[in-house]
Structure formats: C-alpha cells, structure tokens
C-alpha cells in the first residue's frame, strides 16, 4: 500500500460526517441554560454581599467619626455622605467589572 493511499484512507476516515442525536443536543442546550441561570443567581448573590459590606462600612465610619473625632454635625454629615458615596461608587465599579472580580470571588462549584 502506497503512502498516498494510506493518507487518503485516513483523510476519508477522519472526515466522515457525524451528527449528534437530537436528544443529546437538546440535553446539552438544557444544561447550558441551567448553568446560565446558576451563574446569574451567583452574580446577584455577590452584589447583595457587596451591598451588605458597603452598608456595614457606612455605619462603621459614621460611628467612628461621631465617637473618635467628636466632629460638629455639619462636618460629620458632609464626611458621612462623602464616604458613603465612595462606597457606593466602589460597589458599582465592582458590579460592572464583575468579570474581572469573578476569578477572585467565584462562588461556582
């Protein structure tokens, strides 16, 4: 048998048309959809966790400003809202760049 003939046999063998069964395709599409919804749920969970964290920081900084530094009410209010603005901004940044943070906070099993 010549080398070219073997090459042709192998080419024919590897280019045989093959179709997965419709049931397999449907099942796969179903699994992908489940994965998508699971991922979406995880994103929501992460955002909720970040908001809780942000809220805790908001309360903590208010407590420290009030008790540690004994600031007057106007300065306290300004600083309080300034810090809370920063925390909210950080939360939004993290949410919109969640694909980058995904690797660090991944809750996928």
């Amino acid at each position: 048998m010549k080398d070219e003939k073997i090459d042709d046999i192998l080419k024919d063998y590897f280019s045989e048309e093959m179709e997965p069964s419709p049931r397999l395709v449907e099942e796969t599409q179903g699994h992908v959809k489940k994965l998508y919804y699971k991922r979406k749920r995880n994103i929501k969970l992460k955002v909720i966790l970040l908001m809780i964290f942000s809220g805790l920081l908001f309360i903590l900084q208010g407590y420290f400003l009030l008790n540690k530094y004994s600031l007057n009410i106007i300065t306290l209010s300004i600083l309080h809202y300034l810090f809370s603005g920063v925390f909210m901004f950080l939360t939004i940044v993290v949410y919109y760049h969640r694909d980058i943070f995904w690797r660090f906070f991944s809750l996928d099993t």
Partner: peptide
C-alpha cells in the same frame, strides 16, 4: 449580555464538527 438563545445557535452551528472530534 444575557441573550440566552445565542447559546442554542452556537451549539447548532458547531455540533457536527465537535461531535466528530469527540467521536474520533
């Protein structure tokens, strides 16, 4: 971006090729 049917189209598009490779 959240359009789920895009996954169905991708699977349909490459199902034969990928299945052939899996089979081999």
């Amino acid at each position: 971006d959240g359009t789920l049917y895009a996954s169905d189209i991708l699977i349909e598009k490459y199902k034969s090729l990928l299945y052939r490779l899996c089979n081999k």
